[in-house]
Simulated scan of single mutants.
Amino acid sequence: MRRSEFQRAVAAEFGGRSSALVNDLVLPGLGDRTAAEALDAGIPPREVWLALCIETDVPESRRHGAGRLEPRRS
Rank of each mutant, 00 (worst) to 15 (best):
M1D: 12
M1G: 05
R2P: 09
R3T: 12
R3K: 12
R3C: 00
R3G: 07
S4C: 05
E5K: 00
E5A: 01
F6L: 02
F6D: 02
Q7D: 09
R8W: 00
R8I: 03
V10K: 02
A11S: 13
A11E: 15
A11K: 13
A11G: 06
A12K: 03
A12H: 05
A12Q: 13
A12W: 09
E13G: 04
E13I: 10
E13T: 11
F14W: 12
G15E: 00
G15W: 03
G15Q: 09
G16I: 14
R17Q: 14
R17W: 07
R17L: 11
S18L: 01
S19T: 12
S19V: 14
S19R: 11
S19G: 13
A20I: 07
A20H: 14
L21W: 11
L21G: 05
V22K: 06
V22M: 13
N23G: 07
N23R: 08
N23Y: 07
D24K: 15
L25P: 01
L25D: 09
V26P: 01
V26Q: 14
V26W: 06
P28L: 12
G29N: 12
G29D: 14
L30Q: 05
G31T: 11
D32L: 05
D32K: 10
D32T: 09
D32Y: 11
R33V: 00
R33M: 04
R33E: 01
T34E: 04
A35W: 04
A35Y: 01
A35K: 10
A35R: 05
A36G: 08
A36P: 04
A36H: 15
E37F: 06
E37S: 14
E37N: 13
E37I: 06
A38C: 00
L39R: 10
D40L: 09
A41H: 03
A41P: 01
G42L: 03
G42N: 11
I43N: 06
P44T: 13
P44V: 11
P44M: 07
P45C: 01
P45G: 05
P45I: 13
V48N: 02
V48T: 07
W49Q: 15
W49S: 03
W49M: 01
L50S: 00
L50A: 02
A51Y: 00
A51S: 11
I54P: 00
I54F: 07
I54L: 15
E55N: 15
T56G: 02
D57Q: 13
D57E: 13
D57M: 07
D57H: 06
D57W: 12
V58E: 04
V58I: 15
P59F: 15
P59N: 14
E60D: 15
E60H: 14
S61A: 07
R62N: 05
R62F: 10
R62H: 06
R63F: 11
R63M: 14
H64I: 14
H64V: 10
H64C: 12
G65Q: 08
G65E: 14
A66S: 10
G67H: 04
G67P: 05
L69F: 10
L69D: 14
L69Y: 10
L69Q: 08
E70C: 01
P71I: 05
P71Q: 08
P71H: 12
P71W: 03
P71A: 02
P71V: 02
R73P: 03
R73L: 07
S74C: 04
S74E: 03
S74A: 11
